[in-house]
Computed example of a mutant assay.
Amino acid sequence: MKIFETAYLGPLTLRNRVIKAATFEGRTPEALVTDELIDFHRAVAAGGAAMTTVAYCASSPEGRTDRHQIWMRPEAVAGLTRLTETVHAEGAAISAQIGHAGPVANSKSNRATALASSWQISPLSMRLTRTASASDLDRIVADHARAARIAVQSGFDAVELHFGHNYLVSSFLSPALNRRSDQFGGSLENRARVARAVASAVRAEVGTEIAVTAKLNMDDGVPGGFWLDESLQVAQWLESDGSLDALELTAGSSLKNPMYLFRGDVPLRDFAASFPQPQRAGIRMVGSKFLRAYPYKEAYLLEQARQFRSAVDLPLILLGGISTRETMDLAMTEGFEFVAMARALLREPDLINKMQKEEVTSSLCIHCNRCMPTIYSGTRCVLVNEGA
């Protein structure tokens, strides 16, 4: 199995095995598609990736991390259709990352109370989240199905369900965040109910019209959080439910340990500059306690991810530290069907074309992570803008 061979994902035929991973684009100020968002994904599609992922398409208005993100509603369809048609014209497929941010939602920005598996103080808004009730969860599960239908109507080829990073579904999976004693808390079976319900509802809604994948945490990177042994079991349950065409394996907590996913440099100065005072001064003083540094290495999630390869038969998408042809080939050798790339494609949207033509074997990305603070002003590689 080679990285540039034709690949199959559920009902999809893809031109190769490289997926542009979801990275919030920061190009939807009115929570609707813009020309800038279309140009962002057109570049990735024209650059050779098999499929690009639009992030973030919230299932519910209160499920956005802030009010500038798309939420899936009829008013969004016209713009989303322009987006999908543009990507298709470049020969690529397009996926919508749908989910509910839960405790990662900024309730102040959204002007709506953030929901979580259990109440806590949100570090984003410094406000209390509300414990999601059973009726809230019924509505949110239905919202995911409705969002998937809107994705179909808009011409998307796939949806990616966000079960990671301590967003709502992930907050239920995490023992550190889920302190419930009802049917959604306690045992792993109970904590996995929301994930399984969302995936099943989406599959029931779209059938085989589009592919359905999920981004699942292997490890929250938080003491007492969701960990590998439980994640393996959840993956096996999702496989047995028959609701998914593939799993993308991720790690980390946007609430408590975001750099656990990204690895590499921590651009505290750039993060601070993205905020007004007094937040700017606060980030400079204590930001290192939240944005903890982890060394970068190629394929840094592989050791954990290969355990899923031996536990499930589902196609798996390897994420994390993939920026060379050697790593991509290693993923294929290890039995992964796809690789997902983010920072490398921000640096060079045409990287896949250049690799396929054997012009280069590695990305120019140096994992400085200075792209991360740009999510507030249009996600991009600052080195390109600086002429580096």
Rank of each mutant, 00 (worst) to 15 (best):
S377R: 14
A132S: 13
P258I: 00
I283G: 04
M51A: 12
R64H: 01
L32I: 13
R64D: 09
A21H: 06
S133G: 12
R196M: 08
T65L: 12
A197Q: 09
Y296G: 00
R306F: 01
A92E: 02
R64P: 08
S253I: 07
G91E: 11
T86C: 13
L14M: 00
A311M: 13
L228K: 12
R130Y: 04
Y260I: 05
S377H: 04
N353Y: 02
N217I: 09
L232C: 08
A201K: 07
S109N: 14
L188W: 07
P74D: 04
G378Q: 06
G224P: 01
P349W: 11
D241K: 09
T81Q: 11
L32K: 09
E326T: 15
I94C: 13
P103W: 03
A176P: 12
R130H: 02
N385H: 15
T53C: 03
E205K: 14
D220W: 12
K2D: 12
Q236L: 08
A147N: 08
L124W: 10
R203L: 00
I3S: 06
E75P: 07
A132T: 06
N257R: 01
D138P: 08
H88Q: 01
I322L: 14
E85T: 13
N257A: 05
A192Y: 03
K2H: 14
G387V: 03
E358I: 10
Y167K: 01
R196L: 11
K108A: 15
E359N: 12
L37W: 00
G10K: 06
L268Q: 11
M126V: 14
E5H: 13
K357L: 11
W237I: 01
S135Q: 14
E248M: 14
E239D: 02
R325A: 12
V194F: 12
A176K: 12
I322P: 08
P295R: 15
G79W: 01
H165G: 02
L345Q: 03
M259G: 03
G264T: 09
A331C: 14
G47S: 04
C368H: 09
L244Q: 02
G164Q: 10
A299I: 08
